[in-house]
């Protein structure tokens, strides 16, 4: 499997690895994937009162492309509003990392992870009620 330079860079120097307190009301946690399928992503965001993502952390069990997809995503969502972050598409991640077709599912998983994190944050009562719910049907490969 030949990886792009960007995948290798993120794999070797992953950005924003770590964990936040799940119980914190300003933190949203998304955990997607399954060990039996070979990848599990945990993505966490800290959101301020203005609805802007101040910080993001991830941990990923998976191949180099899965690690790179989640690492890249944490870079991208920082400083974005929930709406902006929720509208990131897997195709953008796949394009940026030049993922081959067999690795597209890694970018799908990353998109699912940020949506799940936003969902979790909202369920905890964070964010404004008027914000439209994220589209759960998107992201299928």
């Amino acid at each position: 499997m030949a990886y792009s330079d960007k995948v290798i860079d993120h794999y070797e120097n992953p950005r924003n690895v770590g964990s936040m307190d799940k119980a914190d009301h300003s933190v949203g946690t998304g955990m997607v994937g399954a060990p039996a399928c070979g990848d599990v992503m945990k993505l966490q965001i800290r959101v301020n009162d203005a609805g802007v993502i101040e910080d993001a952390k991830f941990k990923t069990y998976g191949c180099g492309s899965a690690i790179a997809s989640s690492s890249l995503l944490t870079e991208w969502v920082k400083g974005k509003t929930l709406e902006e972050a929720g509208s990131i598409k897997n195709t953008e991640i796949a394009e940026e990392l030049a993922l081959p077709p067999v690795k597209i599912h890694c970018s799908v998983l990353a998109e699912d992870a940020i949506k799940a994190a936003i969902d979790d944050y909202r369920k905890k009562g964070g964010g404004a009620a008027e914000v439209a719910p994220v589209d759960e049907d998107s992201g299928a490969a």
Binding site: M31, A34, P35, C37, T60, Y61
Partner: peptide, 24 residues
């Protein structure tokens, strides 16, 4: 393992078999 959420859960004492995973 430092990167792995599964390792983290294992360290926290979570039984991974008891977790309902969103298989994809």
């Amino acid at each position: 393992r430092d990167l792995s959420p599964l390792w983290e859960m294992h360290q926290e004492g979570v039984d991974l078999k008891s977790v309902e995973w969103a298989a994809h």
